[in-house]
């Protein structure tokens, strides 16, 4: 485990946040009380096998899952202590994208991107301006009047990213954003996410079970198993510290290709997964 210096302000602070469910077979699943710190400007990955609690942990950050215990603090605001209207206002500053995109099918691409702004009561001029800017950012300006059903999976996820960016959030939550996409599309989408972080300064918390995605994009990683964060790893240029559990998983399940360039290559070829 690597100690990480904390100079920038924390974007996310989870303090003892946990959530237990009873699974269909009566087994307890969910997330054990966990601390998590994500610095502003960072891309933080959460990796683990299916059922490890990664998505639950992510969904605890914007309280789509209500924690049984603990506190969720996003950019200094304690979400767990907010009233429903306050929480809704806070959520408007947190973008989220999903594995299955979750676009509104009966609305055009432009109307999908406008959606969070309409909810927030933005002016028509601001909506028009943001829709144009965000669609151009994801390279889909020419699809503004298309229906989602006319787009490919990669394009749908780009629309979802544009929609998440429309209200200018400081934080983007990404729940398995590339898991429904083929490796080549995944690669181009990771570039978009990298741009979101680099050019717009948006902090990203990303859940994935794809090792190559994590290695290509993330600055730091939390490794989860059975509802607990068992390891926190810093990735310097995609290099996984050799003594970490993550490195062990990599050799076991994902092949050993420690540089980002090779990781990208591996992604194209086999889409390495844990």
């Amino acid at each position: 485990m690597t100690a990480v210096p904390h100079s920038p302000p924390a974007a996310i602070q989870l303090r003892g946040v946990g959530k237990r469910f009873t699974g269909s077979d009566g087994e307890a699943v969910g997330v054990a009380p966990t601390d998590l710190d994500v610095a502003a400007g960072e891309i933080h990955g959460i990796i683990g096998f299916s059922g490890a609690g990664k998505s639950t942990l992510l969904r605890l950050v914007n309280l789509l899952e209500r924690p049984d215990s603990g506190e969720v603090i996003v950019h200094g605001e304690n979400l767990t202590r907010m009233s429903p209207p306050q929480l809704r206002a806070a959520r408007q500053r947190i973008g989220m994208i999903f594995q299955h995109f979750n676009l509104l099918h009966n609305r055009t691409v432009a109307d999908n991107v406008a959606f969070p702004l309409r909810i927030a009561g933005a002016s028509p001029e601001r909506i028009r301006e943001r829709v144009q800017a965000c669609l151009s950012f994801v390279g889909l300006s020419d699809k503004a009047e298309a229906w989602p059903s006319q787009l490919s999976g990669g394009q749908k996820q780009r629309v979802a990213i544009a929609r998440a960016l429309a209200p200018e959030p400081h934080l983007l939550l990404a729940d398995e954003p590339t898991s429904a996409l083929d490796p080549r599309t995944t690669l181009s989408l990771l570039e978009v996410l990298d741009d979101v972080n680099r050019r717009l300064g948006v902090t990203i918390l990303l859940v994935s079970h794809e090792m190559a995605v994590i290695r290509r994009l993330c600055h730091r990683v939390s490794v989860m198993e059975a509802g607990e964060v068992i390891e926190r790893v810093e990735l310097a240029n995609g290099q996984v510290p050799p003594d970490s559990r993550l490195a062990q998983w990599l050799t076991e399940f994902g092949g050993a290709s420690p540089t980002p360039a090779q990781a990208a290559g591996a992604l194209e070829k086999e889409s390495a997964s844990v």
Partner: peptide
């Protein structure tokens, strides 16, 4: 459900 959830995540009442 996911579409409704996306709207909730965006702060829709």
């Amino acid at each position: 459900r996911g579409v409704i959830e996306a709207a909730e995540a965006m702060g829709a009442s």
